[in-house]
Each structure stands twice: as C-alpha cells, then as structure tokens.
C-alpha cells in the first residue's frame, strides 16, 4: 500500500488538526464514558468514544457547533455478546480531516434519542437503522421503514435473521 502522505508538507495542518480535535475531543470525552485516540493510518478515524445513549444528543450538539459533518449512523447487533445494540455515529470535519467515531449501546427493545433536530442527515440514517435492526428513535419525525417493504415483519441485519444455516435445505 502507498506510503502515508509526506509528513513535512502537512505538518502545520496536522498541528491545527490535532489542536482542534483535542479541544473538541476533550469536551466530548467529558461527556462520554470512555474515549481513545486511534491511529488514522490503521483505522481510518482519529478518535473513538463510548458514550451513554442518553448523552448522544449533547455530544452531537458539540460536533454540530464545531461544524462537523455527520457522515454515517449505523448499528451493530451485539445482543449475543453484550445484550445490546451498538449504535455507531461518525463525524468528520470537511476543512480538516478529523474523524470521530462515537459508540452508544442501546438495550434490546429500548429507544434511542433521535438527532434529526440537529442533523437532517440522521433522518434517513436512523430510519435505516430502525429498518435493519429494529432500534427505535424517540423524537424522529417520520420513523418508518426505508429500504425493506413497509409490511415486512423482520429486521434484516439482525444476526438471528437470514442466517445461511437457517435456509431450507434441499431434501
């Protein structure tokens, strides 16, 4: 794989990035339960946090005020390991590369707060998470299925649905 970009050219940018992300990171880290720096060259993001689901709106507000774009909201089915659904939010700034990954665990069948009031991008992302995982978002203006048929009675990306082992066997 190609070498990481020349350090010398981007030293000052990285300095700026680090400064800004440190300011942001520390204020978000205070709200989160745990936060870590991540090696961008390996993982593709700079910070990762684990936050309480209740503090997500406030954390989001910090990112919104700092001008970070909401890149993605998705979910991971961890009911086998930890009995929760893990929501994943990705924020990135357009002017300087600084990606933050925020995890938030939601108990199975519990509701998560919606962040559509801040980022309208979350409207469709949260609908997709609901569609695929069944996580409901309180305060969402229009929470209904987005990709699967409206009358589907399953959540497609859950680990207990659609396993190859469950497929009907040729008899």
């Amino acid at each position: 794989m190609s070498k990481p970009r020349a350090e010398a050219e981007h030293d000052s940018d990285e300095h700026e990035t680090e400064k800004m992300s440190r300011i942001l990171g520390s204020s978000v880290a205070e709200l989160a339960e745990s936060s870590e720096h991540a090696d961008y060259a390996k993982y593709g993001y700079h910070h990762v946090y684990l936050a309480n689901i209740e503090s997500i709106p406030e954390i989001t507000r910090h990112f919104f005020d700092a001008g970070y774009l909401l890149e993605m909201v998705t979910c991971q089915d961890r009911r086998d390991d930890a009995g929760t659904m893990r929501l994943v939010y990705t924020f990135n700034h357009l002017a300087h590369l600084d990606r933050h990954l925020v995890h938030a665990d939601v108990a199975a069948d519990a509701e998560a707060p919606s962040i559509t009031s801040l980022y309208q991008a979350a409207d469709w992302f949260e609908r997709e998470v609901y569609d695929m995982y069944g996580v409901r978002f309180s305060g969402h203006p229009n929470l209904k299925r987005i990709l699967l048929p409206e009358d589907a009675d399953f959540y497609a990306l859950r680990k207990d649905f659609g396993r190859i082992e469950d497929a009907p066997q040729e008899s």
Binding site: G134, N142, E150, A152, D153
Partner: peptide, 13 residues
C-alpha cells in the same frame, strides 16, 4: 418483535 404493518404516513405530507 412486532412491527407495524401499515406505518403512519409522513406527517409533513
């Protein structure tokens, strides 16, 4: 897990 077969229409519409 039950889901509503006929979801609410979009209130904006």
């Amino acid at each position: 897990m039950s889901t509503e077969p006929n979801p609410e229409p979009n209130p904006a519409m």
